[in-house]
């Protein structure tokens, strides 16, 4: 299995720009840690550890999207649904740090860039979609599945475009074909990857919602609102 899985390697983005994004990433991760602490209790802390471990596992599973091109889950949407946005960004960051340090996947100097794209921008985009869709969609498992799918898809494409933005700022090579072509390819391929990500996320989140709805962060406080619509999410077995 080759490394470099949606992860930027060293040297692709010029060092000063990579360093700038590293500083930005550290600052935002500190904010996430401060905000995430408020939610992290005896129940959410082990759940968040489990989500990080699951995201690591899922990221190893490259699926084909086009002949000769593959993709894998990024996990921002999945984590945001299960543990909330702040802790989700931390979960994906932990995965990226372990991948860079233990598995030589994603350059050390590019760690800030990768955290910015996938853990911060990807998760933020997913969370915005989640907030909007959970408000307008019926509070059913189907509504949750649609939310998970849409949030995943948009999150992956936005994360891919964040990479293009980083390259625009500090790309090491002046491209003959121009950045426009790369933008199109990145968005197109990642829309396809987003479909796979959406399916995996929807199946995973719906499964957790069936078994333990109390462990789905996005469903917290959802109970009272479900008087008009049938809400099978409450029908799962509860301890």
């Amino acid at each position: 299995m080759d490394g470099l899985a949606l992860h930027i390697a060293d040297g692709v983005i010029e060092t000063p720009v990579a360093a700038g994004f590293a500083a930005l990433a550290v600052a935002v991760v500190v904010v996430c840690l401060a905000r995430g602490r408020r939610a992290l209790d005896d129940r959410l802390a082990p759940m968040a550890g489990l989500v990080a471990a699951f995201v690591f596992a899922a990221q190893m599973l490259n699926f084909p999207v086009l002949p000769g091109v593959s993709g894998h889950l990024v996990g921002g949407a999945l984590a945001a649904l299960l543990v909330g946005p702040w802790v989700a960004a931390l979960c994906v960051s932990v995965v990226l740090v372990v991948q860079a340090l233990v598995f030589a996947d994603g350059g050390l100097s590019a760690l800030g860039l990768n955290i910015t794209n996938m853990a911060l921008v990807g998760t933020a985009a997913a969370y915005l979609v989640i907030v909007v869709l959970l408000r307008v969609l019926p509070r059913t498992l189907a509504g949750l599945a649609v939310t998970a799918f849409a949030a995943s898809m948009i999150s992956v494409v936005v994360a891919a475009l964040a990479f293009v933005g980083e390259y625009w700022v500090g790309g090491g090579v002046e491209l003959r074909a121009g950045l426009g072509e790369v933008t199109g390819v990145m968005a197109g391929v990642h829309a396809l990857i987003g479909i796979g990500e959406g399916l995996i996320t929807a199946v995973t989140v719906v499964t957790v919602a069936r078994v333990r709805p109390d462990l789905v962060y996005a469903l917290r406080g959802a109970r009272p609102a479900s008087t008009t619509a049938p809400a099978p999410v409450t029908g799962g077995s509860v301890e």
């Binding site: 699951f54 690591f56 899922a58 599973l61 490259n62 000769g68 593959s70 790369v182 390819v185 990145m186």
Partner: peptide
């Protein structure tokens, strides 16, 4: 256990083609 099975067993079935970023990065 699910995570260990995915990473420990299913991972061997994963596609080894270049991923989306790698593909875009090698274009040209």
């Amino acid at each position: 256990v699910v995570s260990l099975l995915l990473a420990g067993v299913v991972s061997s079935l994963a596609s080894s083609s270049p991923d989306g970023l790698e593909h875009a990065a090698q274009r040209g």
